[in-house]
Design a protein around this nucleic acid. Structure first.
Lengths: 244, 244
DNA sequence: CACGGCCATATTGTACACAATCGTACGGGA
DNA sequence: TCCCGTACGATTGTGTACAATATGGCCGTG
């Protein structure tokens, strides 16, 4: 702890980091734990601890914390560090509301802009998802396989919307833990409906019908909101007992 | 360069800074110059120069640059510093599109939530703005007086919308220089129409009519977009000749 | 016993030093 | 003459030391 040691002592390989990626490492590591709910809401995160945890110094850790608080994961108070944000039912509503507006906008725009290649990509993603959903094996795991495919599906539509500011915005609003885990709380029926929405969306885009596409997307996100709401009681409770 | 000098040598008062605000100082200073178009699009910003300019060290300057690039003012490339973003017509469209969606959403929400105090505040702001607009004196300056009042007006509506994620989002999309300067390029007729929109908005909110409020806001922002478009040729040109 | 001020400590904010990386100019070779 | 490899300078990324601030416990006082 005293000399100019090679500052590595915790979980990491000693292969030389390619300079310019320590910040990414810290960011990814912390974000990952946040997504896994490793720390209960309200937990204070110390820069020094995180530095030791991720194997980099405080400087990139600070960068990561600023980013994460900007993305809504953390509450940051000047000169007092940051705490894991307590998600209330209201926050969940806020996030989904914004998603409804922005994603339905994306769908409307995409209706007049999506190319055949993008339509094909969406179709392929639907095929994969339906295949996985139909598989009666591995029930819990299929949910986790569905999630990234679903994200890709939405990403293609956002890309087709062709608004350079949109993607980063949506990334911020969809990165909330609650949003990311929606597929896990879906019932079998809700999953089937979600697949249906995807197919309908593709048809609307092919038809170039902006209103249709926007409306389907609106329903689609609303359905997700209802599912997420069922879990919110949990968050409210957690938020309360760790008020501190 | 050897001893623990008080690191002050450029434009600054030597009154002690209250620790925890150097970052803010750097951020405000750089953002201010960006808004004044002090640097043409494409200009590379060196951390060391900005540090000397603002009188703080590189560390808070880096924080400020990260924030500003997150807000869309700068393009940031790893290991290569950052450049002043070249705004294209497409970027302007993207920003206004997002504003239309988010602010009309805010207006819809506000219709069923705005309290009498907020309505009164909006009215007072309208009074002030109309007063200034009616004054035949100080033509160019009146525009600059209108802008902050207009921002306050929109801020009140966003606050009334009561979505905790909304305000930071909109701050990001409205902070683009083009958006901030719209009032300057308004014709007298457009200013009058803008005032009319504000009054109509208040009525819609009082009536609790979400559709009405949303529609008025949509027109309101669209009108601003048209005005901003008239200036975009300029930006395109600047963006091109500084490609580097 | 409660309350308020004070001190010790833990933690963040800032500055600076060094290491890694990128762009560029220069020189050698085809 | 043109191209490619190399070395150098300029600039960013990271680690670390120090300064400033907040927090919590302690003591004194009402």
């Amino acid at each position: 702890m005293d000399g100019p040691w090679r500052g590595m002592q915790e979980g990491d390989d000693d292969k030389r980091r390619p300079h310019g990626h320590a910040g990414e490492i810290a960011y990814a590591a912390i974000r990952d734990r946040l997504l896994r709910d490793e720390w209960p809401a309200g937990t204070r995160l110390l820069e020094a601890d995180l530095a030791a945890l991720t194997g980099v110094s405080r400087t990139p850790v600070r960068d990561a914390l600023r980013r994460l608080s900007n993305e809504g994961f953390l509450d940051y108070v000047a000169n007092a560090g940051c705490r894991v944000k307590a998600f209330t039912a209201k926050d969940v509503e806020a996030a989904f509301d914004l998603r409804v507006e922005l994603e339905s906008y994306a769908a409307r725009r995409a209706a007049s802009r999506a190319g055949t290649a993008q339509i094909a990509a969406l179709s392929a993603l639907c095929d994969r998802m339906e295949e996985i959903a139909a598989d009666p094996e591995g029930e819990p795991r299929s949910r986790d396989q569905l999630t990234p495919l679903n994200q890709s599906f939405h990403a293609v539509i956002v890309e087709a919307a062709d608004n350079p500011r949109l993607a980063p915005f949506l990334a911020n609003v969809t990165s909330a833990p609650v949003v990311l885990r929606t597929y896990r709380s879906y019932t079998a029926e809700e999953i089937a409906r979600s697949m249906g929405h995807h197919r309908e969306l593709i048809q609307a885009l092919q038809a170039g019908d902006a209103d249709w596409a926007g409306a389907v997307m609106r329903s689609h996100i609303h359905a997700g909101y209802r599912a997420a709401l069922r879990d919110t009681g949990l968050f409210g409770a957690v938020a309360e007992n760790t008020q501190d």
